[in-house]
Write a protein that binds this DNA or RNA. Sequence first.
RNA 1: GCUGCUGUAGCUCAGUGGUAGAGCGCACCCUUGGUAAGGGUGAGGCCGGGAGUUCAAUCCUCCCCAGCAGCACCA
Length: 669
Amino acid sequence: MTELLKISLPDGSVREMPQGSTPADVAAQIGPGLAKAALAARVDGELRDITRPFEGDAELALVTSKDVDEALELARHDYAHVLAEAVQNLFPGTQITFGPATDDGFYYDFAPPADRGAFTEEDLPAIEQEMRRIIAADTPLEREVWTRQQLIQWFKDHGESFKAEWAAELPEGEELTIYRQGDWLDMCRGPHLASTGKLDPQAFKLTRVSGAYWRGDQKNAMLSRIYGTGWLNKKQLNEHLHRMEEAAKRDHRKLGREMDLFHLQEEAHGSVFWHPQGYKIWRGLESYMRRKMDGAGYREIKTPQVMDARQWERSGHWGKYRENMFVIPDEVPNTEDEGELVSKDADWMALKPMNCPAHVLVFKQGITSYRELPIRLGEMGCCHRNEPHGALHGLMRVRQFTQDDAHIFCTEAQVVEEVRAFCKLADSVYKDFGFTYAIKLALRPEQRLGSDADWDRAEQELRDAVRDAGMMNDEYGWEELPGEGAFYAPKLEWHLTDAIGRTWQVGTIQGDRVLPERLDASYIGEDGEKHRPVMLHRAIFGSYERFIGILIEHFAGKLPLWLAPTQAVVATIVSDADDYANDALAKLRAAGIRAEADLRNEKINYKVREHSLAKVPHLLVVGKREAEEGTVAVRTLGEKEQRVMSLDEAIAMLREGATPPDLLADLRD
RNA sequence: GCUGCUGUAGCUCAGUGGUAGAGCGCACCCUUGGUAAGGGUGAGGCCGGGAGUUCAAUCCUCCCCAGCAGCACCA
């Protein structure tokens, strides 16, 4: 007797299907259009191959290209397999490892044959061509369940030592599957599209090659990774390539040069030379942050750039962080031509990589009563970290940077409220810049100090604070990240989303009970006894360098008026207007506007073009007519229309527009 | 730090085994022009640093430095 399977569809209908039938069969039964469009199936909520037979009664939803997220994920995973087969066809002896889908495509990590090095970009066109051939062959992708022994044997027989190693280590009890396309196969959980021909040969592009460590660990072998971007059709691919071009136009390194904001050079690689224009942005941010922190009960301090190594030993940095520190011999260097620069038994000092130990030392001066807590010590702290050279990247990753740092010393009972207040403060800052963001909780890492009970409490405090702030929800992108915390404490992280959807981690707060202990910080409690304060490390911009880099890219260089280095340029049409332009400039500057005058012997077209490209927010054009009438023709960046108004009106408009957002809020209150 | 690529004028980039070119920018001259490039002339380069091969190296080889794309690490 053959029992029929009951397959429920999203519209509520139920179809009876014979044993062994597949989602594809259901699609075919419904109609030829759907049969063609269906790419995969959601069976009881699980994404599956459309050709995989039902195992019993099931709820079925067919996935088509209209289900963009699922369809893209499937297609990209297929592209990865096609890439892997193409590479093995062209370069026999290459081993396969892993090849997942990514946010905009896919990659595959290979171990190239011993007789050739890593793949290079020159290899990509040939690989793309082979991939197109494989797609055109329209080979079915077939799922098979194998035993662990079968897998290990097969990979060993085919010289695939990485895959064999992986197969041997997969957890017990998991169903092990391979996906086959013709003669080629890879161990893979799936699911996949029904055949290689479901891919659009014009909708992918191999983009770059790079190294990547086997299993993500730098102790392991370096593999050769090939990246591609993959889509459902050519239009999507072109749109993506266009977005990439737009992102490149926003690159802060390019804009920084074009707008004359800063430069970097070999002799101080990883440290920024701020030019006058760039430093105006910095100063604007710094003033803003001072007002915010002053208003939130922080007191600003300034602590030494260099401290004795013994101090760093006490704080634990010498032991845990030394490889990232710049050290300085505490002696007069040898001035002779011969001999070593520094004697063998030199005492050492170090540039500070963090501000926290110095802040504890400030806290420890005198005797602190519980009545004084919380004490919030802020510092625009300039830190040096000897970062791995490969990590350096424009303003985003540098070796000298300044943090909007602060440490809050408080009692156990005050922790949750202080963290809650910080959540609110950070929120107001990010909103002032128009950022949306996500709050994430980085939980205990595998290697950590302290008992599990301590970690339970520390993590729960941060959760409680975010909940109290009303931010533990999707609106604030709440998410917990297992294993990502610092070795001494869990941390809350603020991830900004910029104008083109990229995310940047900037702000953070973390509760620390280790450093107060190590440096013996204490306060006198109500009971007259000494107690340990909790120390909260926190920052909102993170670093000025990185935050400015993010702002440049977020605004594509068109910074809001209050931050724009030059807020207005008075540009003359004829030299007869020079005197008037200079008067206007003086008035603008007297009103606190960062203005310049352009009296050059150039046509107005030229001046408009140049200042527009320089992203000057307002151009005040003056010719004979304006000089006679006491007006200016205002051309605002991004607008084609000009507005003629009196100079006084223009100054009033600029003053209002140039008010920092926190001061605007004060006006409204 | 690891893999791959790159390094030529202030910027963007051509180029060749016989010591260099463009556009923009810059300087000077002409032009006083009404909202995204007016015209002319000119200056400007130890071809990233060091070693090697060669009669000869910016070009080929090796080492170093820096940058770029990733990896790993991270504000």
